[in-house]
């Protein structure tokens, strides 16, 4: 299980990416994350992230009829969301490279 502080920022970028592919809703996002290999993430963990993305105008929401139960909230990415996603990917790649190098060097030292 990834610690929640570590997960927070990463989750935001991943959710934004999933939404950029298709208009989707909370439960579906949780299922997709599970398919991508994340540990099970409750819809309630995703909901505050979606609210934050919506508040920052990175995604927009629309209520649509659902096959079961009340109307469902579908999210789609906005123009500023696409820019943010691009920035996230660049930041992540920089971070990933840095972290990998730190650990690779550590392993070489140990050997």
């Amino acid at each position: 299980m990834i610690p929640s502080q570590m997960l927070k920022g990463i989750l935001e970028g991943c959710i934004l990416k999933i939404i950029s592919r298709n208009e989707t809703y909370g439960y579906e996002i949780a299922q997709k994350l599970l398919e991508y290999g994340f540990s099970p993430i409750a819809e309630g963990t995703i909901y505050p992230v979606l609210l934050r993305l919506e508040k920052n105008d990175l995604i927009c929401a629309q209520y649509r009829e659902s096959s079961c139960g009340p109307k469902r909230k579908y999210f789609s990415i906005t123009a500023s969301g696409k820019k943010e996603l691009h920035a996230f990917l660049e930041n992540w790649q920089e971070l990933e490279t840095g972290v990998n190098r730190v650990f690779a060097e550590k392993e070489t030292e140990n050997q």
């Binding site: 909370g26 439960y27 409750a42 819809e43 309630g44 963990t45 909901y47 659902s66 079961c68 139960g69 009340p70 109307k71 469902r72 909230k73």
Partner: peptide, 23 residues
């Protein structure tokens, strides 16, 4: 409130509890 009700009712339809939705 509406978002939570939608989540809880959908979970109810799937046979899941409110704890599975919001912990």
């Amino acid at each position: 409130r509406r978002d939570l009700l939608e989540m809880v009712l959908s979970a109810q339809d799937r046979g899941e509890s409110i704890q599975s939705v919001i912990g």
